[in-house]
């Protein structure tokens, strides 16, 4: 649920001004008070962070559904960011993940058991906080090196973009890069998928060998 809110506030940040303008059309409070349209996405982000405390949802099925919401939100983000291939792949991958997760829950329990006042909770929480602070430091350090949003320069892929049609005959540049320019990487990906399939088969084998001694 937390991620849900963060992803949806994310859409609004994609076009903050446009959202604020259109939001005044249908929201009563925003009609009176223009700034509200700008504040609303931040409110939603805050809600997302609040819901973090509710990451302890007792029902695992609802947690899985919330994760599905995040995944499908990502699909819309990809479409807004002009990446249709990714949207297609993500929608398939997300659906398969949810089906597998629901199948796992169907075979086991829906409810989360937890020990009351565990000592480990404090250790975990402090570890999470320390890790967050360390990552924050590096992020603040690194963000100045990134180009501002929307002003990316085609430094690395200029060769791919301008030669794709001539060299590969693919009109879809993503597929041209994936299957022709970087076909070896794709072979690696296929190898990973194959290995995982074998691993899953080995793990889920019904009859294991029984040790006799």
């Amino acid at each position: 649920m937390a991620g849900f809110f963060i992803v949806f506030s994310f859409f609004k940040f994609l076009d903050l001004k446009g959202f604020a303008r259109s939001y005044t059309m249908y929201d009563l409070l925003a009609k009176q008070w223009k700034v509200y349209g700008f504040i609303y996405p931040f409110l939603e982000l805050g809600l997302g962070i609040m819901y973090l405390t509710a990451i302890h949802a007792k029902d695992l099925l609802s947690a899985v559904i919330a994760q599905g919401g995040i995944g499908y939100g990502l699909v819309i983000c990809f479409l807004l960011l002009k990446a249709p291939d990714l949207a297609i792949v993500q929608i398939v991958a997300e659906t398969i993940t949810i089906i597998i997760m629901v199948a796992v829950l169907h075979d086991s329990t829906r409810y989360e058991t937890r020990c009351p006042n565990c000592r480990r909770d404090i250790i975990n929480l402090s570890a999470a906080l320390i890790l967050g602070v360390i990552l924050m430091y590096f992020f603040v350090d690194a963000i100045s090196a990134l180009p501002p949003f929307g002003e990316h320069t085609l430094r690395m892929s200029v060769n791919y973009v301008y030669n794709a049609i001539e060299k590969t005959g693919a009109t879809n540049l993503v597929k041209g890069v994936l299957w022709d320019f970087r076909a070896l990487d794709t072979l690696g990906e296929a190898a990973v998928s194959f290995t995982t399939a074998m691993g899953v088969l080995a793990i889920l084998r019904l009859k294991g060998r029984i040790k006799t001694d």
């Binding site: 993500q90 085609l154 995982t196 899953v200 793990i203």
Partner: peptide, 25 residues
């Protein structure tokens, strides 16, 4: 729009799916 990050993410999505199914198994 730059196609190179999109290609990398396409690969990463499939690998993420594979990893997730392994963990769930």
């Amino acid at each position: 729009v730059d196609p190179l990050p999109q290609t990398m993410v396409l690969t990463a999505i499939v690998i993420a799916l594979a990893t997730n199914s392994m963990i769930l198994a």
